[in-house]
Amino acid sequence: MKRLYTHFGDRVFALVLLLLALGVVALALLMAYELYRGGSLALGRFGLLGFALGREWDPALEKAFGAWPYILGTLIVSLSALSLSFFPALAAAIFAAEYAPRWLAQILNFLLDLMAAVPSVVYGLWGIFVLAPWLRDKLQLPLYLWAAEHAPGLLPLLGVPTGYGLMTAILILASMIVPYTAALARDAIALVPREHREAAYALGATRWEVMRLAILPLARGGILAGAFLALARAVGETLAVTMVIGNSHKLPYTLFGGAATMPSVIANEFTEAVEDLHLSALIAVGFLLFLVSMAVNFTAAYVLRRQERLVKGVL
């Protein structure tokens, strides 16, 4: 094998490739380093834990910066969106892979690609002008009025029904991350060897029983990896969320009321930040976001690798 690369031109070519490819590695390292360095002023002032758990974010008067409201907002929004979208996405994957005739499956696959490709701002636009007003008038306001009369204890949980808040952001986000779970789950289902299905059918299993007993257990890893990828998208989704979440970092968050996430505060305040400490605090939020995405992405890669080995072992 070594002999293949000993030709002079080959050595030059491989070296050039290597140097350029190292650019990818450099990009990842540079991002970690620069975000840390950019945020070091704020991180040094408040300490990493103090910054991450601080509840006060006041660039104007107190000059205090704590990212907890944004971390909490990101966690609530992304995890709720994932749990809302998981079962529909899995259903779409099952339908496209097993139930649908070929022509319909092809259309569904195209739609999944499209769903992932529609720009975030277009979802946000729809959220601002269609979803938020609709939710406010048809769901939040009636619920709020009902609660005011019959269950006043619920009111602090519901919050002000403006339409722009947690609930709207969660719904938009849930529909945006469907394709990431669905695509991976579909591929994992398609990878399950045909013999497994045939064996189960031969035993007299119905189509759902084949799914439950022979296919889903083997595809579990791919489905899980898809869920983690969707979570990574949800954590980092910026503008669609920023446009509908109401952008308020006042704790405690309520179901209808405004909230904020890590990406949304960066998008909102970055161009207006004039003081070094404020700018540094925003970059430090970016650094925390980087750490969270890194962790979620690594988990997805790990789960997917194990899944690949599992299926190969079965084959």
Binding site: M31, G236, S293, N297
Partner: peptide, 20 residues
């Protein structure tokens, strides 16, 4: 691994990097 991780990174972080 790094390509996949960068692929899943929030786009706004690339903006922050370009800003810096």
């Amino acid at each position: 691994l790094l390509s996949d991780t960068l692929n899943g990174m929030p786009a706004i972080l690339f903006g922050l990097l370009a800003f810096i």
